[in-house]
C-alpha cells in the first residue's frame, strides 16, 4: 500500500510494501525545489548583487553561472541536503496502525523517515519552493541570503556562531534552510528574548546557550527529535485517515501519541506493542 498526501511544503508518502517482521514502513517526504540562477546585469560575466536582494543591502561581487557550474551546484545542493535529512528519524507507531500479518503473527511497523529532495530549474515543472541563487565571486566569502535567495557558497561549512569558550560553531547554511522549508523554526523560539509573537529571526532565536546554538536550527549541525516534526505530522495525518484495520485494532487504552525517535525501532508484535516495548535490537528468528 502506498498512500500520498500533499502539503504546501512537500508531499508525503507512506509505503508499506516492504514491511515485514523486521522492516518498517517508509514515510517519505518529497520536496521539489525549483532553482533560478541570478546572473550579473546586462549579460556581463561579473557584476554585483546586494545582500538579501535588497536595495539597502551591501553589494557583493557575483559571477555569471556557466551551465556546468549551475548543474553541479544544484546536484551538490540536493544530494548533500538530502543526505543530511534522510534516514535520521523513526516514528514510534504508538497508534498500532498499519498492522500486517507475517505467517500467523501480527506485526506493527514503525515509520522510517526518508527525505527526497528533487531540484531542477524553476522554469519547468511543479515545485514546492522557488529559490534564486547567486554565484559569488571567489573573493567573496559571505552573502546575505534569505529563505528564497541563496548563494553558491551556502553549501560550505562555515562559522555561524561561537560557543561560550569562543570556539566557532560551524554550519552548512543550506541544511538549516531546508529545515525551514520542512516547517521548522529557530531553536529558541518561545524562550527569553524570542517570543513566539515577535520577530523569530531576532538574534536570541538562534540560541543563547551552547546547546541551542549547536542545533541545526540555531547555528550548528546537530539534529534533535524535534526536527522530525514534519514526518510526525504526516504520520498522524495518515493514521487519522485510515479505516480501522481488519488485522489489528488496539483498544483505545493501548494507544498513545506517536513519537519521533532518533534510533531504529523494529516492528513489534501485538504483545510487545501492548506492553509498550520498544524493539531496538532484532530478536533471534525475527
Amino acid at each position: 500500500m502506498v498512500l500520498r498526501k500533499r502539503y504546501p511544503r512537500y508531499d508525503a508518502f507512506l509505503d508499506t510494501r516492504n514491511c515485514s517482521s523486521r522492516t518498517n514502513l517508509d514515510l517519505t517526504l518529497e520536496m521539489r525545489m525549483g532553482f533560478r540562477p541570478i546572473n550579473p546585469a546586462g549579460g556581463a560575466n561579473t557584476g554585483t548583487y546586494n545582500d538579501y536582494g535588497s536595495s539597502s543591502g551591501t553589494p557583493r561581487q557575483i559571477v555569471k553561472w556557466t551551465a556546468a557550474e549551475w548543474n553541479a551546484w544544484k546536484a551538490s545542493f540536493c544530494s548533500s541536503a538530502q543526505a543530511y535529512w534522510d534516514a535520521k528519524f523513526w516514528i514510534d507507531n504508538r497508534q498500532g496502525a498499519f498492522a500486517l500479518k507475517v505467517g500467523k503473527d501480527v506485526f506493527i511497523p514503525n515509520g522510517y523517515c526518508r527525505f527526497k529532495l528533487i531540484g531542477s530549474d524553476a522554469s519547468a515543472g511543479f515545485h514546492h519552493h522557488i529559490i534564486d541563487v547567486v554565484r559569488l565571486a571567489p573573493s567573496e566569502n559571505w552573502f546575505g541570503s534569505h529563505s528564497t535567495l541563496y548563494d553558491s557558497k551556502d553549501t560550505n561549512l562555515v562559522p555561524k556562531a561561537y560557543d561560550s569558550k569562543g570556539k566557532p560553531i560551524l554550519q552548512r547554511a543550506h541544511v538549516h534552510e531546508v529545515g525551514h522549508l520542512l516547517g521548522l523554526g529557530h531553536v529558541a523560539i518561545g524562550q527569553r528574548g524570542c517570543p513566539v509573537t515577535g520577530d523569530t529571526n531576532a538574534s536570541p532565536c538562534y540560541g543563547t546557550s551552547d546547546q541551542d546554538k549547536k542545533s541545526v536550527m540555531g547555528g550548528g549541525m546537530r539534529l534533535d527529535t524535534i526536527h522530525g516534526t514534519a514526518w510526525l505530522g504526516a504520520f498522524n495525518d495518515f493514521v487519522a485517515a485510515q479505516p480501522q484495520s481488519p488485522i489489528y485494532a488496539p483498544a483505545p487504552a493501548k494507544k498513545r501519541a506517536p513519537q519521533v525517535l532518533m534510533r531504529r525501532a523494529y516492528p513489534r508484535t501485538v504483545a510487545e506493542f501492548e506492553a509498550g516495548t520498544l524493539v531496538t535490537k532484532l530478536l533471534p528468528g525475527r
Binding site: D51, G57, T58, W142, F143, G144, V158, P159, K160, A161, Y162, D163, S164, G166, P168, I169, S203, Y206, G219
Partner: peptide, 10 residues
C-alpha cells in the same frame, strides 16, 4: 561578540 559570525559590519 560571541555571536559575531555573519557578514561583518555593513
Amino acid at each position: 561578540d560571541p555571536d559575531r559570525a555573519g557578514g561583518g559590519i555593513s
